[in-house]
């Protein structure tokens, strides 16, 4: 059920912090560009800033309201993200619809039937095999099944994880807000420091644009993100757990960049979508979060269990 976000004492502190981040980011971009307003208004950076000013507050509002509002936002990401992956991997439409359907079902299972959450990947695989069995089209079916599975694990399943963690853990909402904001900051800081410092390439054969300077930015962004939202850090998290969280967020962001890079290169396709202005699409905006979220969740659980 949707809730009044103002009833949650965490809402306003988080909302104002996110808004302040957006304003500071916008000011930094304007100052660094030093262009006339008319030229700047037509630039990619302006489109990105505009996009952030829409999705930032929208995200905070949706997760604090919860219920079907948050579900709608998650549905939008699953539907658009899966569709973009389908185009990147040239997946047949019948598999594509199943991927989207599987993604939606995953969200529902994560929210309403958590006991069956572990069955999702295998259940999806079984459902996928039904496509060639029932249609009788087996030419290229193994490639279609494999690529659709990659799409499921890369896009749909992590979105289900987000819903799962938010509903299963008492600090799920805090974790979601902290990780999402920190991943976003990590990406932005990587872009800024990577452009400023340049330096040696991290994995030139996988992603020729990623540098060690950018990776350092990932770490700085993750640390600033967690520090900025310290108000949302639950008291049961130890300092060691928070430190590990920062490291895993930075590591996950770098990993996601490299994964996104090799996936696009493997399929020799770059899908340009206009869903999020200034970005290549929904997938390129959320891919870091999709990899980082489950990774950092299990890292945190492990540290809390081992260290306390």
């Amino acid at each position: 059920m949707p809730r009044n976000p103002l009833a949650n004492p965490l809402f306003l502190p988080v909302f104002w912090r996110v808004l302040l981040l957006l304003v500071v980011g916008l000011a930094a971009v304007v100052l660094s560009q030093r262009r006339s307003l008319e030229v700047w208004r037509r630039s990619t950076l302006f489109l990105r800033a505009r996009t952030w000013f829409v999705i930032g507050p929208l995200f905070v509002l949706a997760v604090f309201i919860g219920g079907f509002v948050a579900f709608l936002l998650a549905t939008f990401v699953v539907v658009q993200g899966c569709s973009e992956f389908v185009r990147i991997a040239a997946i047949d439409r019948r598999y594509a619809y199943l991927l989207i359907l599987g993604g939606e079902l995953g969200l529902l299972v994560a929210a309403l039937a958590r006991d069956f959450f572990g069955f999702l990947p295998f259940g999806f695989f079984i459902a996928l095999t039904l496509v060639p069995i029932l249609s009788g089209r087996i030419t290229d079916a193994h490639r279609q099944v494999a690529d659709t599975l990659v799409g499921y694990v890369f896009v749909a399943l992590p979105m289900a994880y987000i819903v799962f963690v938010k509903s299963a853990e008492p600090w799920g909402l805090n974790f979601l807000v902290i990780v999402t904001v920190s991943v976003a900051l990590s990406d932005i800081a990587a872009y800024a420091t990577g452009s400023a410092l340049r330096g040696r390439k991290l994995m030139p054969r996988v992603d020729p644009t990623k540098t060690w300077g950018g990776a350092l930015g990932n770490l700085i962004g993750a640390a600033v993100g967690v520090g900025w939202l310290w108000v949302a850090v639950p008291p049961e998290w130890s300092i060691a757990a928070v430190v590990v969280l920062v490291l895993v967020i930075a590591f996950g962001s770098v990993w996601a960049d490299l994964t996104g890079g090799f996936i696009q290169r493997a399929f020799r396709t770059e899908v340009r979508s206009t869903v999020l202005l200034g970005y290549g699409g929904v997938l390129s905006r959320v891919d870091s979060l999709l990899i980082t979220f489950p990774l950092s969740y299990y890292a945190l659980i492990l540290v809390l269990k081992v260290v306390g």
Partner: peptide
């Protein structure tokens, strides 16, 4: 030829 949309951005 298709009857179910596959979502995506439009300009």
């Amino acid at each position: 030829g298709s009857f179910i949309p596959l979502p995506g951005g439009v300009v």
